[in-house]
Design a protein around this nucleic acid. Structure first.
Length: 598
RNA sequence: GGCCCCGUAGUUCAGUUGAAUAGAACGUCAGAUUCCGGUUCUGAAGGUCACAGGUUUGAGUCCUGUCGGGGUCACCA
């Protein structure tokens, strides 16, 4: 595939050499897209060249423009506005690109081979004491999309999930169920397993608070009451029993976690995400202790009189960080050190990406530094895909305060809205209920996924439960609609016996909308690359929205099948088909399906 | 308090390594369509890019400070 940016830059370098006799640094000549309000497709800003040309901006731009026009066949004409040299790419060049490039499912995507670099992506990582909420949705969608985008950039990918299945919070649910559950099971109450367990987690908190109130009423300080309430003591006792592998405790733990996993499976399936391997903290929480001990022997870490082990990061501008408690047990950091080592030993990976919220920026900074101090050469290949939190209009989501937006509920609402709209428009009337339902789900999830992914991952985003997610404007369904509409045109073409040809006439005179569209299609591979480099599905989302909008404008202004010039008709048909394919591929990178009709 | 991130139309968001008159969408108002799908298209109104300095031919973007918001500094994970 031709690389217009590269061709233009090279010719511009030649032009400066020919005109001024000086070899300019290439980064003085960076091409950029011409802004919509000016004629042209690519623009050079000539201000940086004035020191070389010793001429006015206009004179410099004009001289280079004239050189390019005569020496570069891709350029049809140019115009100069102040220091901006706007270049118009020849129609024939665009048409040649379109006829020579195969735009199929591989377009824009590099094929990974056995030799390609391999990356592991850890995402989702739920706790097994409560159901997934909106924050988890953002994590899952980002992780899954990132995996797709990195694969499209030519990497081999391993998706992993580290389930937090142990700890005091799990014991709280277990304890509450033991006390107040009356043997309730998902089967007996018809409740989804993760929701059932989550309800007992909330129940624990309610009862725990009551005990605290009672104790403070009896004159105990709040702090002491929180520490000495019978329930919390009981939960801690349960955790000790669990760690001692007490059979009864383990059995209850396995049963309740099983319910949660059944629930999670349903949610994951609806979200359309999956994993190549699942790690459980119950199996990894002890790892890392030996590595820390080794680091202590090598004096990379130090020990305090009480026996706790620390690392001093003050020289790196950070604090001191605990690595082992005084009783010798491990903490979060210890475990992450251990699992990182384990993964680099077990797999041939060159990068480990953690999709984790930005409240853990500090944690991952420390993790990389500590592993570096331990001498692991791959420590610099740990990447934290840090994303912002989802906020509600009145602030953060707090599970204990009941201000969470439940993942299952939200997905239900989205499909419900999609169903209502489809019914109103009657577009699915001729289809079987199964088919119609499938499309409705595709649209509902498309709306939700696009809403979450179009925002720059790094930034916090706002979700207002009172205002449902839109289906018009810059939304998933708008883009899906464009795809479905093109499919409809392609079906009509097939019905009328009009074949789609790729050997299009390169002498066609293109209109502005057509050029914009081809240009957008041409830009897709670069967008995929940029999204992979910056870990940003949002770039893909914003790109595909622009593409869909371009197509709708073109569609509105020009006929395709009714065009009388059969060469032009063939070209427009191919352009439509290619647009649909790029939309489909781009949406797929976001984990969004493209319906044939909707 | 230390460190990190953020502050762009009424609202939700774009804005590549500095570059032209800062762009969409929603909402509001006004329009289009002999149609291959009206979940479409066009237009209007709406901005001191938090504030103040600085660097630069040129700053929403880089630097410093101030104000405002969030995160984090647990022998929780």
């Amino acid at each position: 595939m031709i690389n217009l940016e590269k061709i233009l830059t090279q010719h511009a370098v030649e032009a400066v050499m020919a005109l001024y006799g000086i070899q300019p640094d290439e980064n003085l000549l960076q091409v950029q897209q011409t802004r919509k309000e000016f004629e042209g497709n690519y623009t050079f800003v000539v201000f940086p060249l004035l020191k070389i040309s010793k001429q006015s901006p206009e004179a410099t731009a004009t001289a280079i423009g004239e050189y390019l026009q005569t020496n570069c066949k891709e350029i049809a004409r140019f115009n100069v506005i102040k220091g901006f040299l706007n270049l118009v790419i020849a129609d024939a060049c665009w048409l040649q690109f379109l006829s020579e490039t195969t735009i199929d499912t591989h377009y824009g995507c590099a094929e990974a081979s056995g030799e390609s670099p391999q990356k592991m992506i850890e995402y989702s990582s739920p706790n097994t004491n409560k159901p997934l909420h909106l924050g988890h949705i953002r994590n899952n969608l980002l992780g899954y999309s990132l995996a797709k985008i990195l694969a499209a950039a030519g990497h081999r990918i391993i998706k992993v999930n580290l389930v937090n299945d142990r700890g005091i919070h799990i014991c709280k649910s277990m304890l509450a169920w033991k006390h107040w559950g009356n043997g309730e099971t998902p089967a007996s109450s018809g409740k989804k397993g993760d929701h059932l367990v989550g309800d007992y987690y909330v129940k624990f908190d309610v009862e725990y608070k009551k005990e605290i109130e009672r104790l403070t009423g009896e004159g105990m300080s709040r702090e002491e009451a929180e520490r000495k309430a019978p329930l919390i003591l009981e939960a801690q006792e349960m955790l000790r029993k669990w760690e001692a592998k007490d059979p009864e405790t383990i059995a209850l733990w396995e049963t309740m976690n099983g319910w949660v996993y059944d629930g999670f499976d349903v949610t994951y399936k609806r979200l359309g995400v999956d994993f190549d391997r699942i790690y459980y903290e119950s199996q990894t929480y002890l790892s890392g202790k030996e590595i820390v001990a080794e680091g202590l022997r090598k004096k990379i870490f130090y020990q305090k009189p009480d026996g706790s082990v620390w690392v001093d990061l003050t020289a790196d501008g950070l604090d001191e960080k605990l690595l082992l408690r005084s009783d010798g047990t491990s903490v979060y950091m210890t475990q992450d050190i251990g699992t990182a080592c384990q993964r680099f030993e077990e797999y041939d990976i060159d990068e480990l990406v953690y999709v984790v919220g930005n409240e853990q920026d500090y944690h991952f900074k420390v993790l990389s530094l500590v592993l570096g101090k331990l001498g692991y050469p791959w420590a610099k290949n740990l990447k934290h895909m840090s994303y912002g939190m989802v906020e509600l209009p009145d602030g953060k989501m707090k599970s204990r305060e009941g201000t969470v937006v439940d993942a299952d509920d939200l997905m239900d609402e989205m499909t419900e809205t999609a169903r209502d709209m489809s019914r109103e428009l009657g577009k699915l009337d001729g289809l079987s209920t199964d088919e119609a339902e499938k499309i409705v789900k595709t649209i509902g999830m498309g709306a939700l996924k696009y809403f979450m992914l179009k925002v720059d991952p790094k930034k916090n985003m706002l979700f207002d439960p009172k205002e449902s997610i839109d289906f018009n404007g810059n939304t998933g369904p708008f883009i899906q609609y464009t795809h479905a509409r093109i499919q409809s045109v392609l079906r009509k073409a097939a019905e009328s016996g009009i074949e789609i040809r790729t050997d299009i006439d390169t002498n066609i005179k293109l209109n502005g909308k057509e050029i914009e569209l081809i240009h957008a299609i041409y830009d897709f591979p670069g967008t995929v690359k940029a999204a992979a480099e910056t870990f940003s599905p949002a770039l893909i989302a914003n790109y595909v929205y622009e593409l869909a909008k371009e197509y709708n404008q073109f569609y509105h202004d020009y006929s395709i099948l009714k065009e009388e010039n059969t060469n032009v008709r063939a070209f427009r048909l191919l352009l439509s088909k290619d647009t649909a394919q790029v939309i489909r591929t781009a949406l797929d990178l976001l984990g969004i399906d493209s319906p044939e009709r909707m």
